[in-house]
């Protein structure tokens, strides 16, 4: 029997760098995003002088906690090669529904699980349309977005104030070393926990690996006998649950629910995920990258408010960054196709 050793020798011959590239190529976009983030930090600090303070950094996590959670769910869906446009609207609807229940005196121990279940139901509905009826993910999640937005307004046309102490506690509690130093709120802890759990699930469970396999080549995944249908449904459910959880966090953050919450948030989320290095074609990307993408988004927003410039610059900058990353991705894909 002949023995194939060439690739191993090659790796040795070109040293650790080559070896790193052959093993960890998919992390490169994440590092690119990280480099971008650091660049923005440095530029901000150089320009404003008081940019990199514990207060600003802590606020990044606080202000964008909901976005971290949404981005995690979106990462699952995009990794399978799909997309979920409903997250902003589902977040608004679960927030509204939850707030109305709380107003009616339902204990938060029931309300929060109900919100998560509602989100899961939306995710499941999208997944069923995509998986069983061959509806494009774009259209299926669009319908869910319409439905959720309409339902949010059906709950109430006006904002509902939330006075439940447990919910507000999520936001108001600040765990802080010393006055003026870094702090974190329970919402921030939830966001980081979600990122951590999702990262572990994607890296260390068969479900997670199946998600990557589907995104890499769905046909192959089927032929390998992996549970494609179940995993894809579950990816949308994860995104739905994340949207529900974001509903909880966002309600806590604003102390009220408003049916117009999260307008356009789905676009911010997608942008953050893509900037964080996840390929829109699926199969490549990490929740850690998405987290960095959200940080980039949040930092740009903060920088723009520091400048006192119009917040419309946020969307413009994020749009341009998205363009840059998509074109770069396109070039990378085109190059690997040629090979």
């Amino acid at each position: 029997m002949t023995s194939v050793q060439a690739p191993l020798e090659k790796a040795d011959a070109f040293g650790p760098l080559k070896r790193f590239v052959s093993r960890r190529a998919s992390w490169i976009p994440v590092f690119a995003a990280l480099a971008l983030l650091i660049l923005i930090f440095i530029a901000g600090q150089a320009y404003f002088g008081n940019f990199l303070t514990p207060r600003v950094i802590s606020a990044l996590l606080l202000d964008n906690a909901y976005l971290f959670i949404l981005a995690v769910g979106m990462t699952f869906v995009i990794l399978t090669g799909g997309i979920d446009l409903s997250v902003g609207a589902v977040m608004a609807f679960t927030g509204m529904f939850g707030a109305s229940l709380l107003r009616d005196g339902v204990p938060s121990g029931i309300v929060v699980p109900v919100m998560l279940l509602l989100g899961a139901a939306f995710g499941l509905a999208i997944g069923v349309l995509v998986q069983y009826f061959d509806v494009q993910p774009f259209i299926a999640s669009l319908a869910a977005m319409f439905a959720a937005r309409g339902l949010a307004f059906m709950v109430s046309l006006d904002s509902i104030k939330v006075e439940t102490p447990e919910i507000l506690w999520l936001q108001s509690t600040r765990i802080q070393g010393a006055p003026g130093s870094f702090y974190i709120t329970p919402t921030g802890i939830i966001a980081l926990l979600v990122v951590l759990v999702a990262a572990l699930v994607l890296a260390y469970t068969r479900f997670g690996r199946t998600i990557y396999a589907i995104g890499g080549n769905e046909q192959s995944a089927r032929l390998m006998g992996l549970p494609v249908v179940r995993s894809k449904l579950l990816a949308y459910v994860v995104s739905g649950v994340c949207a529900g959880l974001a509903g909880v966090v966002f309600t806590a953050y604003t102390g009220a629910s408003y049916p117009l919450n999260g307008m356009g948030t789905e676009l911010d989320t997608i942008a953050a995920v893509v900037i964080g290095g996840t390929l829109l074609l699926g199969g490549s990307g990490f929740v850690v990258g998405s987290m960095i993408g959200v940080f980039v988004y949040g930092t740009i927003k903060t920088a723009i408010s520091f400048m006192g410039a119009d917040q419309s610059w946020t969307r413009i900058s994020v749009g341009l960054l998205l363009l840059l990353f998509v074109v770069v991705q396109r070039i990378i894909v085109a190059r690997s196709d040629r090979r």
Partner: peptide, 26 residues
């Protein structure tokens, strides 16, 4: 460039309104 249509037009969808706001000065 060969970008998927959804994404290609998403860029402008994101940035366009911002540009409009800039034109009217907010």
């Amino acid at each position: 460039v060969g970008v998927q249509p959804i994404i290609a037009t998403l860029v402008l969808m994101l940035a366009g309104r911002g540009v409009a706001l800039l034109i009217t000065g907010g």
